[in-house]
């Protein structure tokens, strides 16, 4: 099962390597990982997308909690939540393809954020499934480069992850 785990941790050098090291050391999966500082500059927020059965996920959250730099851990998948991923995708765009890419991007509510005579770069935000669907729907287009941010998530409603 796919899980989105949010981690609030001290914004210290080496904190990220502790988390990443833990995953490889204990044979846990990382599908994607994002990390950035929060409004409180002493804290970073990390989102790890991982897979595993209940027991593995339980171990992941427990082991993360054991790290001294980790302040709080939440498995967002346990409750209602919103997840988003950002993708930038560069297409070879000539002739008819220019119109088709534009049309498809509009349908997916993407934006073209860079243009050259031969390329389009599209920005798209959404769930990972939506980004996958966009790529699939332009299967006949020539994709030059795909950059995905990895999943970020936040709980719905009044629930928050803070200290």
């Amino acid at each position: 099962m796919r899980h989105i785990i949010s981690v609030l941790m001290e914004n210290e050098p080496g904190a990220l390597s502790r988390v990443v090291g833990l995953f490889s050391q204990r044979n846990f999966n990382i599908e994607s990982l994002t990390v950035a500082p929060t409004e409180d500059s002493t804290l970073s927020r990390m989102t790890v997308m991982t897979t595993g059965d209940e027991r593995v996920i339980e171990q992941i959250t427990k082991q993360l909690n054991k790290l001294i730099d980790v302040v709080k851990v939440v498995d967002l998948s346990e409750g209602d939540h919103i997840e988003r991923e950002l993708m930038m995708i560069k297409f070879k765009a000539n002739g008819q393809m220019r119109a088709e890419i534009k049309r498809t991007a509009d349908i997916f509510r993407g934006q073209i954020i860079d243009i050259t005579p031969n390329t389009y770069t599209v920005q798209l935000v959404g769930s990972s499934d939506k980004l996958d669907a966009f790529i699939a729907s332009l299967g006949n287009a020539s994709i030059m480069e795909v950059v995905r941010s990895g999943v970020s998530g936040i709980a719905r409603g009044e629930k928050v992850l803070t200290i």
């Binding site: 050098p13 080496g14 390597s17 502790r18 090291g21 050391q25 001294i68």
Partner: peptide, 16 residues
Amino acid sequence: MLGISRPIVKHNFSVT
């Protein structure tokens, strides 16, 4: 040493 010891310590510190 921080990297090498990381998986076998409860915690490690570097003095800056």
